[in-house]
Design a protein around this nucleic acid. Structure first.
Length: 711
DNA sequence: TACATTAATATTTTT
DNA sequence: TATTAATGTA
């Protein structure tokens, strides 16, 4: 424990406290006197602070007290990285920095809100005013202010993945690409190619050569499609996820005055999960920090798990060489897990020689050995988990402090069934999103065209919901309406065969004409009234979907504007299980089920990792590429280091021949390659679920009552 | 040209 | 398997 207290203690209580000066500075800035105030900014921190850091260890305190210049914090798992960010935020504000001039970039909005909330606890409510969010949402906010400088119109909207795919499908269909007997990539693949090229800073040709060699001879076609795709997006006033970052960098690089303005505005930049940023995000940070270099990045190279999205681990590995005078601080005391858990985790990760060296030391003592559980199959694995959850709850461990983690969203289906049978409430994170279901997208399409009438993709969707309207007719209507500037009140052209659909469209147009300035909830309510008949006609299970839509109404209540609501639903969609009939509220006791990716940054007392089997972790998809295999290793590391008190790795035999695998009858029955037999002996208690003690015998539908286990 | 049917074909992770 | 592209039919 360290106490950093300076000689000059009562400074901040003086009439002209640093807070006050900071406030004045903020005002000056708002008046546009940026050049003037910048020099006047008080020398925050340094020796004059009386901020209490007695809660922190030496390294954490050092990071918290750091003020100027680039700072790299290498924070091992569970080393108090969030706490460090929270305290530094609070400390800067305590020492007079205007919270509105601190930029906190995190991986999810939830993470930044949580940090700001905690900072409020450490200091006071001012911390709530810090500008925080994801890279994408921050870019979205800024770009809306400067839309015209990047050749977009005001009021652009964001495409989610499926919107982007639809656009790709349109383009694909327009051209005559499906030539000869040659196979042509599908929309999904085409989008992957384009996005990969953008995110990894490679040409389309290079991407095809590296990642899609079988399509390499189609390079010209793909190039053409990519070009059309970019042009179309702009014409429709739509941005995809990548654009948000790309256009931001474009703005910073091509408009020095704006770059300067923004950099001066955000005087202190803090970035969480830096190991998962890509080259565009890095360029953006360079631009934003250009005026002051006050850039603090926090991350753990051992937890870099997003390379599939272009994340470049080199960002963190070479940060020290990319900026001048970088201060590096390593946080290596682990406050989360017990030593036995850390021992295995470290041993697993240290086989990756490319990383910064890891030496995690537990602050806690004692602890049990992790368990390696050998299950017969998928179902026994599920039964074991449920059984164990129940007995732990008996022992007084709350359900909410336990989690089940897995590589891929689909791997949890058996566990979900078993949990439902046993009546255990759970919440699932990762995988399919609520906003990706057809009926929600339908409802959102109506609102999207209201916010952005140029969004022809959404027009297509809306129009094709009408009876008798297919791709051709909807295109005709759109072509006509485009000339009318999509003026809702002027919608009278509709060469319908069916009069009912024609009237329906006019009804919708009339509705849209009246919703200007209305509260999002009210708009949505009207949209749903109009959508109701379509819903009943299209879906057999419309009742269930209706409940989802009602949930959407509930969610819409907290938004000020339609645009804000749509932006958030595409940038941070609510998790599917948080909505709907069997929704579990946050406060209720529940087990968490999560993909390992979505579990990043979180922790639980007991953690179960499902299917720690070669082919699952590492995924058989990654087996060709050594770099990808190393990423899978890190994935396992992330999973294991989520556990505070006890860790269960489960290894079922997954050789079900009825399961469908692309390579044909694959069988997975080997323990993951990341844990050797030797390591099993050294670090684990091995449990074999054998005859007699087979769990799940109470399952009335189970057929495993007489099953023989030979383990 | 809309809508239904059949054939083909790729499967993870997420802003 | 489930999703999507191609083809057939009304």
């Amino acid at each position: 424990m360290v106490r950093m207290r300076s000689a000059v203690q009562s400074r901040s209580r003086a009439p002209f406290s640093l807070e006050w000066i900071g406030f004045l500075m903020g005002c000056l800035y708002d008046e546009g006197m940026s050049g003037f105030h910048y020099k006047m900014t008080p020398r925050v921190g340094d020796a004059s602070s009386s901020f209490d850091v007695s809660d922190l260890n030496k390294e954490q305190a050092e990071a918290v007290m750091h003020t100027r210049g680039p700072l790299l914090v290498l924070a091992g798992a569970g080393s108090g990285k969030t706490k460090t960010l929270v305290y530094r935020m609070a400390r800067l504000i305590h020492d007079g920095v205007d919270p509105k001039r601190i930029l906190l970039l995190t991986f999810t909005r939830k993470a930044s809100q949580e940090m700001m909330r905690r900072a409020c606890g450490v200091l006071d409510a001012r911390c709530q005013q810090v500008v925080g969010g994801t890279f994408h949402s921050f870019c979205n906010m800024v770009l809306h202010q400067y839309a015209t400088q990047i050749e977009y119109q005001n009021g652009f909207t964001i495409m989610d993945r499926s919107d982007a795919e639809n656009l790709m499908a349109l383009i694909r269909k327009q051209g005559d690409y499906q030539k000869k007997d040659k196979r042509f990539p599908k929309k999904n693949t085409l989008l992957d190619m384009v996005s990969k090229s953008v995110n990894t800073n490679r040409s389309i040709e290079q991407v095809l050569m590296d990642d899609f060699p079988h399509f390499y001879d189609l390079t010209d076609d793909v190039l053409e499609i990519a070009k059309k795709y970019h042009i179309q997006k702009e014409a429709l006033n739509l941005m995809d996820y990548d654009d948000l970052l790309v256009k931001m960098v474009h703005l910073l690089n091509h408009h020095p005055n704006i770059r300067q303005q923004l950099s001066k505005k955000y005087q202190y930049i803090m970035v969480d999960e830096f190991q998962d940023t890509n080259h565009i995000q890095l360029a953006m940070l360079k631009g934003l920090a250009s005026e002051h270099q006050n850039l603090m990045v926090v991350g753990d190279d051992a937890q870099s798990i997003y390379s599939f999205r272009g994340a470049d681990i080199q960002n963190i590995l070479t940060f020290e060489t990319m900026f001048d005078n970088v201060t590096t601080i390593r946080l290596s005391t682990n406050y989360r897990s017990t030593q036995p858990i850390l021992d295995v985790s470290s041993d697993v990760i240290n086989h990756d020689v490319n990383l910064y060296e890891k030496a995690l030391v537990a602050a806690r003592s004692g602890g049990e050995k992790p368990k390696l559980v050998e299950a017969f199959d998928d179902m026994e694995q599920a039964d074991f988990v449920v059984d164990r959850l129940l007995s732990l709850r008996e022992e007084g461990v709350s359900l909410t402090s336990m989690a089940v983690l897995f590589r891929s969203s689909s791997h949890s289906s058996q566990v979900e069934l078993a949990l439902t049978r046993a009546n255990i409430p759970y919440k699932k994170y990762g995988g399919f999103k609520f906003t990706e279901t057809a009926h929600i997208k339908d409802a959102m399409a109506y609102m999207k065209v209201m916010v952005n009438p140029d969004d022809e993709l959404s027009w297509h969707r809306v129009l094709q919901l009408l009876d008798g309207v297919g791709p051709k007719l909807s295109q005709q209507i759109i072509n006509y309406q485009r000339e009318q500037q999509f003026n809702f009140s002027g919608m009278d052209y509709a060469p319908f065969k069916k009069k009912a659909a024609h009237d329906e469209l006019l009804g919708i147009a009339a509705l849209m004409a009246t919703t200007n300035g209305m509260a999002p909830t009210d708009v949505l309510q009207r949209v749903l009234d109009a959508y109701q008949p379509v819903l009943k006609k299209t879906y057999d299970d419309f009742h269930k979907r209706e409940q989802d839509l009602n949930a959407l109404v509930a969610l819409s209540a907290r938004f000020r504007s339609l645009a804000a609501m749509l932006d958030e639903f595409t940038l941070e969609p609510p998790e599917s299980s948080q909505v709907g009939a069997d929704a579990v509220s946050d406060d209720d006791e529940h087990v968490v089920l999560s993909t390992i990716h979505s579990a990043k940054g979180l922790e639980w007392s007991r953690v179960f990792v499902l299917s720690v089997v070669d082919g699952y972790i590492p995924s058989f998809r990654s087996l060709q590429d050594p770099a990808q295999i190393e990423e899978e290793r890190r994935l396992l590391y992330v999973a294991m280091t989520r556990a505070k008190d006890d860790l269960y790795l489960i290894k079922p035999n997954l050789d079900d021949p009825s399961a469908y695998y692309p390579m044909g009858g694959m069988s997975f029955s080997q323990l993951t390659r990341f844990i050797s037999p030797d390591q099993v002996d050294r670090y684990f208690d091995t449990w074999s679920l054998g005859v007699g003690e087979a769990v799940g015998n109470d399952d009335p539908f189970g057929d495993d009552a007489g099953k023989k286990y030979s383990l």
